[in-house]
Amino acid sequence: MGTNGFQTESITSWEGLGPYLTSNFDIRDMEFDDMYDKYTQSSFNIDFRTGYIITDGLMLGLGFKYTSTSRNIEYSSDAKDSGYEDYDETSNQLTLSPAIRYYFAESGVWSQIDYSIWSTSSDDSEGTYDDAEFPKVNQLGFSAGYAASLNDYVSLNPYLKYSLITQTTKDAGYDKDFDEVDEVIKKGSFDIGVSLTVHLGY
């Protein structure tokens, strides 16, 4: 199972933007329309996970996740006269997660090992990211849980998970001689959660 959807939001009011000098040279609080014609943000998400039982208790699984976010800013004519230019930005993240899960007989208890690879990219109208190196992330996860059956097809799965995560960014770090080297960050992550699983019979 997974989640899929599209979300968009449009800002219509923004307080605290600072002072605004009117054409009559009066100073007042800046309003949203003084600076912007439009300010929108949106996101699109696909999150799909599936598995196939190849033998008693042993399941092979695959997860796929794609997330895209964007921001679009159109400035007012007064702001453009002051040097502001319309701006748009997009960011994308793709994740692939193969997994192996084993169910212990009829107890409902299971254990799982999964390996995730995800990459990110960004682009904007100003060319900020033209020469950017984006991090590559690998994650090795170990989890255990319990499948509590709600009916013949649906189970609720509380679980514990520990992950080893490595994030590598090409030429983003420096060594003792100040030469460029890959920046490598390693960390551990502990999760407690609940998932809902649908079992499709045949």
Results as ranks from 00 to 15, higher is better:
residue 87 Y to L: 04
residue 88 D to L: 04
residue 27 I to Y: 04
residue 121 S to G: 10
residue 175 D to N: 14
residue 90 T to N: 02
residue 9 E to Q: 07
residue 89 E to V: 04
residue 46 I to W: 03
residue 105 A to T: 14
residue 138 N to A: 04
residue 127 G to T: 05
residue 8 T to A: 13
residue 10 S to F: 05
residue 129 Y to Q: 02
residue 103 Y to H: 12
residue 61 G to V: 13
residue 78 D to P: 00
residue 120 T to K: 06
residue 137 V to H: 00
residue 28 R to K: 13
residue 194 V to G: 05
residue 151 N to A: 11
residue 192 I to H: 09
residue 16 G to R: 01
residue 39 Y to T: 10
residue 118 W to E: 04
residue 172 A to Q: 06
residue 182 D to T: 11
residue 149 S to I: 10
residue 122 S to K: 11
residue 90 T to F: 02
residue 50 T to F: 07
residue 23 S to N: 07
residue 174 Y to I: 15
residue 3 T to G: 06
residue 186 K to Q: 11
residue 86 D to M: 07
residue 126 E to M: 08
residue 131 D to A: 11
residue 57 G to C: 10
residue 48 F to D: 02
residue 37 D to H: 05
residue 93 Q to V: 12
residue 10 S to E: 12
residue 85 E to N: 10
residue 63 G to A: 06
residue 120 T to L: 06
residue 103 Y to G: 04
residue 196 L to K: 03
residue 135 P to G: 04
residue 149 S to M: 11
residue 20 Y to T: 12
residue 12 T to Q: 05
residue 94 L to Q: 00
residue 176 K to V: 15
residue 2 G to N: 04
residue 153 Y to W: 11
residue 34 D to H: 10
residue 80 K to F: 06
residue 164 L to G: 03
residue 179 D to L: 15
residue 94 L to C: 01
residue 72 N to S: 15
residue 93 Q to P: 00
residue 181 V to C: 01
residue 193 G to F: 12
residue 53 I to A: 07
residue 21 L to Y: 09
residue 61 G to D: 04
residue 94 L to H: 01
residue 202 Y to V: 14
residue 94 L to N: 00
residue 76 S to H: 05
residue 103 Y to W: 09
residue 4 N to K: 08
residue 100 I to F: 04
residue 55 T to M: 10
residue 137 V to K: 02
residue 51 G to I: 09
residue 76 S to V: 07
residue 93 Q to C: 01
residue 69 T to G: 09
residue 101 R to T: 15
residue 139 Q to R: 13
residue 150 L to Q: 03
residue 184 V to E: 09
residue 107 S to F: 12
residue 88 D to I: 02
residue 76 S to P: 01
residue 37 D to Q: 13
residue 43 S to Y: 01
residue 184 V to L: 03
residue 51 G to C: 11
residue 44 F to M: 12
residue 184 V to H: 07
residue 128 T to Y: 11
residue 193 G to Y: 09
residue 163 S to Y: 04
residue 141 G to M: 03
residue 11 I to F: 14
residue 104 F to L: 12
residue 37 D to I: 05
residue 170 K to N: 10
